[in-house]
Structures are given as structure tokens and as C-alpha cells.
Amino acid sequence: MRQNTLGRGEVRVSGLSFGSAGIGNLYTPVEPDQAAAAVDAAWDAGIRYFDTAPHYGLGLAERRVGEALRSRPRADYTLSTKVGRLLEPLPFADGDDLDNGFAVRATHRRVWDFSADGVARSIDDSLKRLGTDRIDMVYLHDPDHHLAEALGQAYPALERLRAEGVVGAIGAGMNQTAALTRFLRDTDVDVVLCAGRYTLLDQSALTELLPEAAERGKSVIVGGVFNSGLLADPRPGQTYDYAAAPPALLERALRIKSVAERHGVPLRAAAIAYPLRHPAVASVLVGTRSPGEVQDAAHMYGLTVPDALWDDLRAEGLLEGGVR
């Protein structure tokens, strides 16, 4: 599988990467053996970049990723996690965490913290959960409503850790483009993780974010390429950005699927391939929860998508622009 270097640094990522929210019991439980098998399947497919976060299952995803990778040579893969939400233990584990999207016991509460001390504590906690001696890449996680603190305290803390060699690359991960573009302009991040804003249904990252990254020699990891389900399997009742898909978007997704199938390309393959055409995009991050889902994503990644498909999508007004 193709490997790319982030920005002007030395951290490398595979073109397809493993998102661990699913094995952190996103929405529904995943058995431990299935979680481990999903990571094993990713490794067997050539995936060498694994992303996680304390938020995912109140630390469950970090523990599962760390355990599944423990027997692998540490120099052979890239591991990222995120800061901004500290996990504070609760005196009583009463109820579940489904209000936050995860089918786990509510053993902890999340506390927003983008202070320098919060960054240090979060990384220390993540190292323990992951069972590793280093993290290759750290993102500021969803600092949308905490930008002043994130820019003024958390980012400088990450910059110091990078300078000291504690982490190899730093960045920010969000579901919007405006603040990520600001991080590219106003800081020296290596990478930004942009979820859902550079897909076959939403090319808003093309307006400022991607040109800014390309001009500054920074990298973009693209997540949410299926827009939470609609581009994986467009049908009535499917979700778009974690809510019921509006009828107009469902119709658009079905039209895109029809064009792709005329070229013999599954819609999932087109959804994965599209972001990777931009020179600033280093990897597509796909959330998977089983070996079968991993194998399917890897197969879709490996399929050839002809240029004529993109031409036809533009001709039918289904693709706003992008790299030819």
C-alpha cells in the first residue's frame, strides 16, 4: 500500500488508514475478539496508520488498538491519538455512554481541557491506555468552541513536544474547514484531519482548506468519506453526517452511484478514491469495526477508478470541481 510523508516532516502514513471509533463500541458493542481481528485484518491489508482518541468509548478504543498492535514492530506503524477531552473517573459506574454515541459503561466523564497541563495529562493517560512508549502524531480534537485556549495553550504545548521529539507530528481534527484553515495559516501544524468535508457529496474543503495546505506544504487526512453511511449504501433511512439523510441528498447519492456503476466502479471505491486525487491529501481514514469491513475498504482502495468517471460526474453536475 502506498505510503506518504506528512508535510515536511518524517512521519509516514498509509494511503488508507484505520479509524478506531467503531472498535470503541460506536453505537453498538463490538466483542474483544472482533476488535482484535479488525486490527489484524488492517495489518494484513497493508494499513500502517492507526488513529484513535480518548473520546472513543471512554478509552476503550485506545486500549484495544494498543493491545492489538503490541506484538507488531513499533517502527513499522504510525499511531495517532487526540487531546482536548480528559477522562475523569466517576464514583459510580451507573448507566451507559450512549448519549455520547458509545455502547460502554459510563465509568468516566469527559472534561474539555485545551490547557498546556491538560495536553500533558491527556498524552500521559493515552500512553498508559495504549501501552506504548510513544505516540507518533497528536491532534487537537474538535476544538471548535475552545479555539482561544486551543491556539493559545494546547497548540504551543504540542509544538514544544514536537521540538523535544516526544511526538513526531501535530495537528488538529474537526468536522469543519474554517478553523482547520486557520490552523494551517496561523500555526506550524504538520497535518489536519478533516472529516466529512471532502467527499463526493461535500467538496467544501476545496474552497480554502486544501489550497492552503497545498501552498504551505502541509498534509490533510480525510475522514468521513462515506458521510456516516450515505455514500456507502444510499437507501431510504440511511444517515448523512449522523442524522437522517435529506431526500435531495439521497437522490444525489443514488445518481452518483449510477454513474460509478456505469464505469464498473462500486460507489464505495469512488468515495475512497476521490479525496486521494488531491496532492495535499495523504490518507483516507475509514472507520471499521470488523475484519470484513476492513477487507472491503482495502479492496475498494485498491480498485482502479477511471478518469472518465470524474468527467461524467462533472458533466452531470454531480461534482463541483477538484483535481482532474
Rank of each mutant, 00 (worst) to 15 (best):
S14A: 02
A308G: 11
T187R: 14
T207E: 13
D190T: 14
H108L: 03
T5A: 09
H263M: 00
A93M: 10
G321N: 08
A232W: 01
I272Q: 01
D76F: 00
S71M: 11
R235A: 13
G171M: 15
A205M: 07
S17Y: 12
L16T: 09
V220F: 05
P236V: 13
C194V: 02
P156F: 11
S115K: 06
G223A: 06
A93Y: 12
E208M: 03
L231A: 08
D133A: 14
V305G: 05
W310S: 00
E88V: 14
L201P: 04
P234S: 11
L230Q: 02
F50C: 01
G165Q: 07
M1L: 01
M300K: 11
G84L: 12
E88D: 14
V265D: 12
M300F: 11
P291A: 01
A103Q: 09
I47R: 08
A38M: 01
G229P: 09
Y139Q: 06
A150S: 12
R255C: 08
A179V: 04
D94R: 15
A195Q: 09
R105E: 13
E261M: 11
V305N: 14
D233F: 06
G9F: 02
T132M: 04
D190H: 15
S283N: 02
A103L: 14
E159R: 15
G322Q: 11
Y274L: 15
A244I: 00
M1F: 01
A150N: 03
A214I: 02
P54N: 08
Q153A: 14
V265K: 13
A93W: 08
D125G: 10
L140A: 00
A154D: 06
A243P: 00
L86K: 05
G292L: 10
A36H: 12
R160F: 03
R262D: 15
D133E: 15
D44Q: 15
Y301P: 09
P32D: 14
G317I: 04
D233L: 05
N4C: 10
V189K: 07
A297F: 14
A260P: 08
M174C: 03
Q176P: 00
A61K: 10
A157Q: 11
E320Y: 00
N25F: 07
L130P: 13
V166E: 10
R314F: 00
G131Q: 09
W112K: 12
L319E: 07
R72G: 12
R109N: 10
V281C: 13
R289E: 07
H263C: 01
A308Q: 15
W112R: 15
L127V: 03
L140M: 04
G173K: 09
L69A: 02
Y49D: 02
R85I: 01
E159T: 03
R85S: 11
P266A: 09
S258W: 13
L267R: 00
K218T: 10
P234E: 03
S126Y: 08
S290L: 10
V39E: 12
G168H: 13
N227S: 13
P291E: 09
Y301H: 15
A38L: 05
